[in-house]
């Protein structure tokens, strides 16, 4: 969704301009996007024969795993389960995740928490594109996975994966903090498998 400069609207028809973006995004994204490629076991073994890359991979993956900074972009009810997880009782600061970077430029994890409506879809797509490259998306909650209880509504996107590629799906409406921590653990395992050589495959 590139924004060509001469199309930037003046103030009064900004809403119409946004309406067109929502309409053609709605027509264009009817099927979910293909899943991201992750290494299967034998691919990993074939890759590990090259020692130099693996040690570098492990170092970078360790750094990515150790400090995942989520961007504060929460839509609905799952927001408060994520806030409850970042509070004193289920503290995600232990994993180095409590630095809530408000600007997408500095964050590398998009916590897609809550129902996504079609009006919000282009904003989510823009936030995802603004994030710096090694970025991951966690779809938290039934609404984020498949539209959940609002699936047959005229204004709800049936799942974030129609708009942005998603790495980890955490079921639950809203998922309990323990489920969320387990889901983030799975995300860290997934990051552990990635390799810099396959970055842009």
């Amino acid at each position: 969704m590139e924004i060509n400069p001469q199309m930037i609207p003046s103030l009064d028809d900004a809403d119409a301009y946004e309406g067109n973006i929502v309409e053609d995004l709605r027509r264009s994204s009817l099927e979910p996007l293909p899943e991201k490629v992750i290494l299967s076991e034998e691919e990993l073994k074939e890759l590990n024969r090259n020692i130099i890359v693996t040690t570098l991979d492990d170092a970078i993956n360790w750094a990515h795993k150790a400090s995942l900074w989520p961007v504060t972009c929460f839509t609905a009810c799952c927001t408060f389960e994520f806030i409850a997880t970042s509070m004193a009782r289920f503290d995600i600061a232990r994993f180095g995740m409590e630095v809530l970077r408000p600007s997408p430029r500095q964050a590398d994890l998009l916590m897609a928490a809550g129902t996504l409506s079609w009006k919000m879809a282009p904003q989510i797509k823009r936030i995802y594109e603004q994030m710096a490259e090694p970025k991951w998306v966690v779809a938290m909650g039934a609404c984020a996975i498949s539209g959940g209880i609002f699936q047959d509504s005229y204004a709800v996107v049936p799942g974030y994966n129609h708009i942005i590629p998603v790495d980890v799906y955490i079921p639950g409406c809203p998922p309990r903090p323990e489920t969320l921590l387990y889901g983030l653990e799975q995300l860290r395992n997934k990051i552990g498998h990635e390799s810099i050589r396959l970055e842009n495959k």
Partner: peptide
């Protein structure tokens, strides 16, 4: 709703186009 939306969804005769 966004501006380009055609129809009024709360009416009884509204067909969900998407």
């Amino acid at each position: 709703l966004w501006d380009g939306f055609e129809g009024h969804p709360q009416r009884k005769d509204y067909k969900n186009v998407a």
